[in-house]
Design a protein around this nucleic acid. Sequence first.
DNA 1: ATGGTAGCGGAGCTA
Length: 262
Amino acid sequence: MPFTLATWNINSVRLRAALVSRLLAEEAPDVLCLQECKSPVDMIPTEGFHALGYTHMVARGQKGYNGVAILSKLPLEDTGETDFAGLGHARHVSARLPNGVTIHNCYVPAGGDIPDRDQNVKFGQKLDYLTHLRDHFHEQRPARSILVGDLNIAPREDDVWDHKALLKIVSHTPIEVDHLNEAREAGGWVDVTRANLPEGRLYSWWSYRSPDWNAADKGRRLDHVWATADIANAGHSSRILRDVRGWDQPSDHAPVFATFDL
DNA sequence: ATGGTAGCGGAGCTA
């Protein structure tokens, strides 16, 4: 049975519940992973999602910041969260589908503005988060698993609008890219988006601060879909819904989709 | 080098 999965940094699920419902109604993914819900779990407005057939949710939340949720038409078994780097933030949750596929939904710390852990505690926390994630999945050796989320790093030269201009900008510095690639390889993860779309520039985020984001197109691919090697070949039809970034009062991220024949 | 926008919560932090 094929299933379609999407990941989207929603930047407040309460403010943008109507946008979530619109995406669910128009695109009908089986599973939608959200990041930056910025809400305690019991305050997430689930009624509209239920009405569209998304009757299952596994989430972790906190007041005002962070927060991750998995909405699903298929039953979900809550398989817990890991507090990578011990930050005490709601940045990870996982759940298992009836077909045995485990989904990890991650929100990696943005890391502040200065790419130096001696001058900027947040940058160190970002690197530590990725190191812990790397070690965790190296030990766990995941199988039949998918990891999605806002990983807050654009790893490839064609994942940013200007590689040279962004080499010292947090999200594209070599040390971050190294940490992300090490984490991916240690867990045996395959970048499904790039396996499906190996050529050309791909962005999933455009800053709110750009007055004309669409024309300027100074984007970065911060949102990712990974899968373990045993199921990565089942992934196909990856796509980024750029139009969603142009909806009224949008998130600054566009949703990333993939379909798996499993 | 700076400032540009947005959400939360009601000032300043985070992104």
